[in-house]
């Protein structure tokens, strides 16, 4: 791979789901909060566990671990509150994570056509190759914006 195939260095948040690590672009992350009371009400979106209240805003909790690792999280240490872009506005979702999160600076490699839609890019950190997630493809209610691997979503989120 040539250097021209790499994006610029970019801030990402590393998150842990079970024994695997994933990354999200830092500008898609609002805050990391301790699990708080979850409110549940009748609905038909299976990916949503319930909602939490954060700064007066109702935020749906979406456990993406099963999609990414094949297993639901047994322990939820934090909620990573993340923003999905819907045109000019942001729609927030809380992603349960099972360990500490880490803010890093990393060079991103764009996802290829054969990558899953939830992969926006790849990064390498501590000898580990890590998927940078495309929230739009991973959480309900949003179509992947470029229909393939979510690069367009990542590009839009770039500063």
């Amino acid at each position: 791979m040539s250097w021209t195939e790499q994006y610029d260095a970019r801030s990402c948040v590393l998150l842990r789901l079970g024994d695997r690590r994933f990354a999200l672009a830092a500008d898609q992350v609002s805050e990391l909060v301790a699990p708080s009371r979850m409110f549940r009400f009748a609905h038909r979106t299976p990916e949503i566990d319930g909602v939490i209240l954060r700064r007066g805003r109702v935020v749906p909790v979406c456990d993406v671990a099963e999609k990414l690792t094949g297993k639901r999280l047994t322990s939820r240490r934090f909620y990573l509150i993340s923003a999905r872009r819907l045109g000019a506005r942001a729609d927030w979702v809380a992603l349960p994570v099972s360990g500490d999160c880490e803010l890093i600076q990393a060079d991103l490699t764009p996802a290829g056509p054969s990558d899953s839609p939830h992969v926006a890019a790849w990064l390498s950190h501590d000898g580990e190759v890590i998927e940078v997630l495309n929230l739009g493809a991973l959480t309900p209610g949003m179509e992947p914006q470029d229909g393939s691997n979510g690069n367009a979503v990542l590009a839009e989120a770039r500063v």
């Binding site: 009748a42 038909r44 979106t45 007066g56 999905r84 729609d91 979702v93």
Partner: peptide, 18 residues
């Protein structure tokens, strides 16, 4: 309702209140 809710609940509810 957040866009993450994307099934019948969008018709069921006007929204959420606290």
């Amino acid at each position: 309702l957040s866009e993450a809710f994307c099934h019948e609940e969008r018709v069921w509810y006007r929204g959420l209140t606290v």
